[in-house]
């Protein structure tokens, strides 16, 4: 079993789905990048008066009109006009129509790619009202890696009953949690392999529009035909809403860790619904120390823990642990236990 769950991606995703939303000066530079780089691209960073930078797993590059340059001084800085035009393009010339998204600090564009925005926050009554003077833009390329969950799925199914087990996926940022969650949603919903032909009804609470990559409420990524999505909804509230309204058999959500999340998880597990969630972290010891996650683990709510890292690129499978006794079922060092 290979440690890496993910593979290289289609370079056309960047050309066809991201470039039309970039200011023409930047778009031309990105379009001229080598295919190998485009196929691994994860982020495009546009910062006012700072060098145009792209990131991929474990690497970064500065760009000029000639392509990748080795010295920062040679890179092309993004101008105010670049930023203004890019913001107009991603918001469809209508920033006013995206006030809720702006409050969260990002917009989603067709294709499910998330565009993070930062600038000057306008605060009213202690709460962020909007962001103005946008000076920093981060395009995060949403990649669907079909099959990313195939290798871990057998560990998440109870061999005797065939039921899906409550699972927590743990990794540091950009470790591939969301990609794995998305593929698990697809596999469980479609009903392949160990899940059985009929699949399960899946509900996704997608607080930050990352799992399903919804654009105007419609998922842009394949999450299976038995899946319902509650987009841009606070997790705890969303979990309860889905439970009441859509009768899911499995609920999938991203980045749990708040007190109210724990209450909602407790509620759905007691209602007999399976939860598959993710959390930031790097080891079992570390997440056990965290107040909310530690409490959930202590109560043995999660029957499986999956640890990912980005050692060999996003989605490097480090370990799968049995939740109750902490027994490793798979580890990158020794393979199958």
């Amino acid at each position: 079993m290979e440690g890496e769950l993910f593979v290289a991606f289609n370079p056309n995703i960047v050309m066809e789905q991201i470039c039309p939303f970039l200011a023409p000066g930047i778009s031309r530079i990105i379009e001229a990048l080598p295919v190998e780089l485009l196929s691994r691209l994860e982020e495009i960073r546009i910062r006012h008066s700072r060098p145009l930078t792209v990131y991929w797993a474990g690497g970064e590059a500065y760009l000029s009109s000639k392509g990748v340059v080795s010295r920062i001084e040679d890179a092309r800085p993004a101008s105010g006009e670049d930023i203004e035009k890019t913001v107009e393009l991603i918001s469809g010339y209508s920033l006013y129509a995206y006030e809720d998204e702006l409050r969260q600090g990002y917009l989603t564009i067709p294709g499910g790619h998330r565009v993070g925005l930062a600038g000057r926050a306008v605060v009213e009554g202690g709460k962020i009202k909007t962001i103005t003077d946008i000076s920093f833009i981060n395009f995060r390329v949403a990649r669907q890696v079909k099959g990313a969950g195939t290798k871990v799925l057998p560990f998440l199914v109870d061999r005797r009953s065939g039921n899906i087990l409550n699972t927590l996926i743990v990794s540091p940022p950009q470790g591939g949690k969301t990609t794995l969650l998305r593929d698990l949603a697809l596999l469980i919903s479609s009903g392949v392999g160990v899940v059985g032909q009929r699949g399960k009804k899946v509900g996704i609470v997608d607080e930050r529009s990352e799992i399903a990559g919804c654009y105007q409420g419609v998922p842009q990524l394949d999450i299976g035909f038995r899946t319902d999505v509650l987009d841009s909804c606070p997790k705890a509230e969303g979990i309860m809403m889905l439970l009441r309204s859509m009768s899911p058999q499995v609920i999938i959500t991203d980045e749990i860790g708040r007190e109210e999340d724990a209450g909602a998880i407790e509620e759905i597990i007691n209602a007999g619904v399976v939860i598959i969630a993710s959390a930031h972290g790097s080891s079992l010891e570390e997440i056990c120390r965290r107040p909310i996650l530690g409490c959930l683990l202590e109560k043995n709510y999660f029957e499986r823990l999956i640890f990912l890292s980005n050692k060999k690129g996003p989605g490097t499978l480090e370990m799968i642990v049995e939740g109750e006794k902490g027994l490793p079922l798979y580890s990158a060092r020794s393979g199958w236990e």
Partner: peptide, 10 residues
């Protein structure tokens, strides 16, 4: 001014 600012501003 088209498309700039929030609803109130526009």
């Amino acid at each position: 001014v088209w498309g700039k600012g929030d609803k109130k501003g526009q």
